[in-house]
Design a binder for these strands. Sequence first.
DNA 1: GAACTCCATCGATGATTATCTAATCAGATA
DNA 2: TATCTGATTAGATAATCATCGATGGAGTTC
Lengths: 192, 192
Amino acid sequence: MPEADIATLLAFFKAMANESRLRIIGLVAERERSVQELAELLDLKEPTVSHHLAALKALDLLHVRVEGVTHWHRLRPEGLHDFNRALFDQKDLTALAKPEQTWEEKVIANFLMPDGTLRTLPASRRKRWVLLKWQMSGFEEGRRYPEKEVNAILQRRHPDAATMRREMIGWKMLAREDNVYWRLPEDQWEEA
Amino acid sequence: MPEADIATLLAFFKAMANESRLRIIGLVAERERSVQELAELLDLKEPTVSHHLAALKALDLLHVRVEGVTHWHRLRPEGLHDFNRALFDQKDLTALAKPEQTWEEKVIANFLMPDGTLRTLPASRRKRWVLLKWQMSGFEEGRRYPEKEVNAILQRRHPDAATMRREMIGWKMLAREDNVYWRLPEDQWEEA
DNA sequence: GAACTCCATCGATGATTATCTAATCAGATA
DNA sequence: TATCTGATTAGATAATCATCGATGGAGTTC
């Protein structure tokens, strides 16, 4: 397993948090089992077993040997042990505390190209707002920027500086007078 | 933790199979946290956090220190390690395959005292039937038992041999002639 | 005692998921 | 090719569970 990021552990625990799947693990730990056989032993229908096996396979916990139309499943115990290690050393445990990316961070990550420029300006108004807010870090409070400089700053991210400038003013992030711009205090910015 | 029965493990995995609870674990692993604080960090409302904490407390994974109206929660790492051990040694793993106790096995377990004798003869006719059936293992087919021997066998489990003997005959588990008893074939026993 | 703070409980709501039937697929066999 | 068999996929349904607002309880402060 890669590193113990919260998503990986969560997927693992979700897979194990079901009685049918736990019992399947027990059964395929003993020896190879076919879908039919498992359905019989667990008193479930075959599609249900198939569904559970798919969940376990997605985590690479099973080995499948195909023999004609029969699929023989057995446990890959290393899979289990990988998760074991990941979970129970303290370093990884506290790593769970690290918050996930927020929605805004994800939006930014999605629109950012490797060179740091924006792929496009999002069509969604709310996403555009996130990206404009993000670009405000290019402006210091208390400084005055001629239009030419504003454009230069914005074009580091996307060529359509005019649109971005206009919307920043609309959201009250920037103010303008006589073609000179300045950053407004963050608590005055409007919400999307 | 006691032994790794499937119900215990299932409860543990269900508790861990939730992102909010995983992140709570990460946060309380670092240091003590109040409900408020967790709600803030996780961007959840307090009742939700309270609910998750209750789930973790039910598994004895948390330690709580009450200070005025504030409840400080921290992780009890031993709790985690107990589950760890239970899960990941192979012996316990295959134990998952063992089917749950049937109703009959539970009845027997409930009436059996540590020394192997019966606490009482159940009042319920159906439970009494289960326990009599179970005691039939003391009799071999094809052998003839004088009444004295029958009593001796039955009294290993409960002093009231007369009642048990009489009911075994009623259920056609035992037959009698001239004060000599013998076991009847299992497919002739009557159902409760 | 009144007001306030922090937390727990209750009941409702929406989302997720386990399970089923029906339909489909893919090897094997006639 | 037609048929059979074991497995998967699709779609529907029902149960479970996460979350919330409203309310209540218990300690603290005034």
